[in-house]
Computed example of a mutant assay.
Amino acid sequence: MYTDSRDTEIALMKKLWRGEKAVCPKCGKGTLVHLHRKAKKSACDWKCPSCGEIYRTITMLKRLPID
C-alpha cells in the first residue's frame, strides 16, 4: 500500500478515477499525472513527476487488505 490505511488508499483511488488532482502520498510534493498521457493506453496508471513513483490503481485495488 502507498498510504497508511485501507480507507486512505481507497480515497486516493477514487480521487484519481474521478479525475481530481491528487498529491503523491510518497513524497507529498508532486501532483499525480497520467502515466500514458500521449498514448492513452490506460486511464488507470498515474506517475508522480517529482519522485517518479508509479501508481497502478488496478494493482492497488487487488492488493487492498480485506479489513
Rank of each mutant, 00 (worst) to 15 (best):
L61C: 08
S50T: 12
P65F: 03
T59Q: 11
W17V: 04
R18T: 12
Y2W: 13
K21D: 15
W17I: 04
L12W: 04
I10R: 03
A43E: 14
I54Y: 06
L64M: 09
C44K: 14
D4Q: 10
P25W: 00
T3Y: 04
H36T: 01
K21S: 14
A39Q: 13
R56H: 15
K29S: 07
W17L: 14
G19D: 10
L16V: 12
R18D: 15
L64E: 01
S5P: 00
W46I: 06
L35I: 00
K21W: 07
P65S: 10
C44I: 02
Y2Q: 03
P25D: 08
T31F: 06
R18Q: 14
H34T: 06
R18C: 09
E53H: 00
A11S: 14
H36R: 03
Y55M: 02
S50H: 15
G28K: 02
C51S: 11
A22D: 04
E53I: 03
I58A: 12
H36G: 07
W46S: 11
A39R: 07
A39K: 03
L35F: 15
T8V: 05
K40H: 12
E9M: 05
T3R: 09
S42Q: 06
A43T: 12
K26M: 05
A22I: 07
P49F: 11
L32N: 01
A11I: 05
R63K: 07
P49W: 06
R63A: 13
A43Q: 12
Y55D: 01
K38A: 13
D67Q: 10
T59G: 03
M60A: 14
W46T: 07
M13Q: 09
H36N: 15
K26C: 02
L35D: 05
K15G: 07
K26N: 08
K40A: 13
C24R: 03
K21R: 14
S42N: 13
P49V: 04
A43M: 10
L12R: 04
C44H: 15
W17G: 01
R56N: 15
A11L: 05
M60N: 01
D45E: 13
Y55A: 00
K47C: 10
C24W: 01
R18W: 08
I66R: 13
Y2I: 14
P49I: 09
C27A: 07
R56T: 08
A43K: 14
M60R: 01
M1K: 09
D67E: 13
D67F: 09
R63N: 14
